[in-house]
Design a protein around this nucleic acid. Structure first.
Lengths: 158, 158
DNA sequence: ATCTATATGAAATATATGTTTCGTAAAATC
DNA sequence: GATTTTACGAAACATATATTTCATATAGAT
């Protein structure tokens, strides 16, 4: 399932992680390969699903989403029906940007954004605490954003 | 600092969060507004910084980055020089995708990707534990990805 | 070393794109 | 209610774009 990429593919991907709207010709300038080849490589990478999507990344604060929090959720009983339902409901909530099942003292780790603390509280009370089987919930509110990127490291071979 | 957006702007942003390479004409079809207006709105949103960037989002697993972990880092002494140095070094590490200063029992919460557990261990030993003033470090390894998106919620007014 | 398969760059093609202009409509101001 | 300002859509413009074709080079297999 892991693609094998050469230096050329990695250059293309690196450039597109920074500027997703680059054209084949611009890619060619950045990579030193011809536009036609860049285009063919690009299509292959899209086809293979290495490039999942192109997205506009928006400014959270400018959209009025002042709050960002990590939520650590423990599940009471691990009934599969409950777990499936929890996961599905989480997937549907737009303010949950990330959710992973994790090791450590919580079962799930979420990253959630909200307009303000009252809005976040509403998310907890009206949504999270209402999920079936949810046990302990601990919140870590982000005080400061030090880094936030979608760029995956492409250094070595894959 | 928070922009005020009308329904039209929000439609444009919503569409571009899903498909970042949409042209003005495609945006026009999706929003029911003319291409010229879409283009003007779009430029204004870019200019205002609401649209931070356009990016290709890659498939972590396909790139061979099997491991994703949350790291909770506590700082021994909060000397400002140490904190600044830590933050700057973290920003420069490509395997750290996210880092926030957070409330709760850790000072920093990081999301880190790695090729495998050995690779992740190397990150901890050779980088994180070497940072000045770093105290307790607890890792939560992601067992399963339930949701991972860059799409910010645009529902209500801002 | 020969043959085969694959990847390459340059040029050509057709199309879509960003961007501007202009006359009109809607909103806001007075 | 009149006037100014702002936003709009349609059409026009020049340009850049994706995509294909073809001849050549490269690499892999036998």
């Amino acid at each position: 399932m892991t693609m094998s990429l050469d230096a050329q593919d990695r250059k293309i991907l690196a450039a597109l992680q920074k500027r997703g709207r680059l054209s084949s010709q611009e890619l060619a300038e950045e990579t030193g390969v011809s536009p036609a080849t860049c285009w063919r490589r690009l299509k292959a990478l899209e086809e293979a699903g290495v490039i999942e999507a192109y997205r506009a990344v928006l400014d959270r604060e400018k959209l009025g989403l002042a709050v960002c929090a990590f939520v650590h959720v423990s599940i009471e009983r691990q009934y599969p029906e409950y777990v499936d339902e929890i996961e599905e409901k989480i997937r549907r909530r737009p303010e949950v940007l990330e959710c992973y099942a994790t090791t450590g003292d919580a079962d799930f780790t979420l990253r959630v954004v909200a307009r303000d603390i009252a809005d976040y509280d509403r998310f907890l009370q009206k949504f999270l605490f209402e999920l079936p089987g949810v046990g302990r919930v601990r919140s870590s509110i982000a005080l400061r954003e030090i880094k936030q990127t979608t760029e995956l490291p492409l250094e070595r071979e894959s």
